[in-house]
Design a protein around this nucleic acid. Structure first.
Length: 468
RNA sequence: GAGGUUGUAGCUCAGCCGGUUAGAGCAUCAGAUUGUGGUUCUGAGGGUCGAGGGUUCGAGCCCCUUUAGCCUCCCCA
């Protein structure tokens, strides 16, 4: 069986799908630009050492590695080394520059950090950039998860002001508002999670605690408690965590309750302070009429986020529509020392990411794409061959000069075949430049949705199509 | 990495208890109809039943192996 196929977890995008995806991308781009962010692109592949160790142990496993070229051309003495390394590769998870030294981009944040470090002397800090490019993960695909997918990131690096956090919240609200997706933006702080681990008397267990807590809405408290036990958290610690999770109320009430519980933890109080300051700034950014409406921003202590470079405020966006079962469609947070990984210390950054593949799926499910996205060819010219063909080409040029998307059926095929083609393409107008029309220097214009047909001058046709 | 599930025409899927030449709808192509599409009618092409092995007089169907997709867990967007 030699049917063609594409690699697991990748997709083709039909013309309609591309249009819809571009609609999302353009919407986001407009908003990023409106907030003063600048575009950036980085290569699809990075040096493997740039990526390894940045995403945790699981992340390293999911990096797509690129086999070195010319392995078969190695000199004899290098081949012995290659064979030895190859055996290592087969026996354990292991990478060696002899076999692979490049890898596909896993996310946009690390390449961004790499870029900032490499160009630190040219950049004006705080540097605000957005980036929309595909990333690759060797994950096992499933619903809403692909091996190649796009991320759209906006980050600010070189400023610790919480105004940045507040603005990024604004970007999220602005974007999902424009895309007509109801969302809840969950917000938390790694510092609260650290404080919680302190409270349990196990500060080193912060990752275990957060990973377990993150599953709260999936498996419920009973499940989380069980997982905490499995991760050897003490009963007292679990009780502390339960206390925090049971806190309810609006954001102010929650933060006040956390402050009460964590009053002896410096990092806890710091986290609470940051969250309330962020929310206060954000409130000032809202248009006046919106200041007292529900913002859709929800403090959620169970929010963890996997990436282990986050240090401060973290956010995650989920679709708030009850019928949509989809994981997060965006996330982000502050990372205090991201560029430190590449030797540039003391540069703090904060950013958000949009998962546009999931956003697409959600919009499809909610049917919120605009109707008129498919603005392809507006008019097709039927090809009657001979002199009529030349006449049609002149008309075609005239249409395009007037800014009308037009095409001619390239072959003088049977009339019925040409009409069927136009119909299948959903082209709204068809022009019939035949003998009669040519001799009068006019053309028949047929509206394909009404079936109406008129004999008109080319200029009249242009006016009609333009005003449609 | 673990588990579940499905592979039959280009697509979506039937296919009985194992029985002779494997079907349907859609799509494609041709004709009715060489200046009028969508609708209709007629006809045609299209299959290594995912692959390999086994059981059987006989396998799309049963057994084993293998492979690919989908779904779940882990983790993540």
């Amino acid at each position: 069986m030699s049917k063609p196929s594409i690699p697991q977890g990748t997709r083709d995008f039909s013309p309609e799908e591309v249009r819809k995806r571009q609609y999302i991308l353009h919407t986001l781009q407009d908003i990023f630009e409106l907030y003063g962010f600048q575009p950036l692109e980085t290569p699809s592949m990075e040096n493997l050492v740039t990526l390894t160790g940045k995403y945790g142990e699981e992340g390293d496993r999911l990096i797509f590695k690129i086999l070195n070229n010319g392995l078969h051309e190695k000199k004899e003495e290098d081949k012995a080394k290659l064979n030895a390394e190859w055996n290592n590769l087969l026996s354990k998870p292991y990478s060696t520059p002899v076999v692979t030294e490049r890898a596909l981009r896993y996310d946009l944040t690390i390449p961004f950090a790499r870029y900032v470090v490499m160009h630190q002397n040219e950049l004006a800090f705080p540097f605000r950039r957005y980036q929309m490019q595909p990333v690759w993960r060797a994950d096992r695909p499933q619903k809403g998860r692909y091996r190649e997918f796009w991320q759209c990131d906006a980050d600010v690096v070189g400023s610790t002001s919480l105004i940045n956090e507040a603005e990024l919240l604004g970007i999220y609200q602005n974007a999902f508002d424009k895309l007509h997706i109801p969302v809840t933006i969950k917000i938390n702080s790694r510092k609260l999670l650290a404080a919680l681990a302190e409270l349990c008397g196990m500060p080193e267990k912060m990752m275990d605690i957060t990973i377990a807590m993150d599953k709260l809405d999936k498996i419920g408290w009973i499940g989380v408690a069980k997982e905490l036990q499995e991760r050897s958290i003490s009963d007292d610690g679990i009780w502390q965590i339960e206390k925090v999770i049971n806190v309810t109320g609006n954001n102010e009430q929650k933060l006040a309750a956390f402050a009460d519980i964590m009053q002896h933890s410096a990092s806890g109080m710091e986290g609470i302070n940051e969250l309330s300051k962020t929310l206060a700034y954000h409130k000032e950014l809202l248009p006046p009429s919106d200041k007292d409406v529900k913002t859709g921003i929800e403090v959620d202590i169970s929010l963890a986020r996997g990436l282990n470079y986050y240090t401060g405020v973290i956010v995650e966006v989920v679709c708030a529509h009850p019928d949509v079962k989809m994981g997060s469609i965006g996330g982000g947070g502050r990372y205090d020392d991201l560029t430190g990984l590449f030797g540039l210390k003391g540069l703090s950054g904060v950013g958000v990411s949009f998962g546009i593949d999931r956003i697409y799926d959600v919009m499809e499910e909610l049917k919120v794409f605009p109707e008129q996205l498919a603005t392809g060819t507006a008019v097709m010219l039927v090809n009657f061959g001979g002199e009529n063909e030349i006449y049609a080409l002149h008309l075609l040029q005239k249409l395009r000069a007037a800014g009308i998307a037009a095409e001619i059926y390239p072959d003088a095929a049977k009339f019925d075949k040409q009409m069927k083609y136009a119909n299948k393409r959903g082209i709204p107008y068809v022009m019939l430049p035949g003998d009669d029309e040519r001799q009068k220097n006019m053309v028949s214009l047929k509206n394909f949705s009404t079936g109406e047909q008129q004999l008109l001058t080319p200029d009249e046709c242009i006016r009609i199509i333009q005003s449609a």
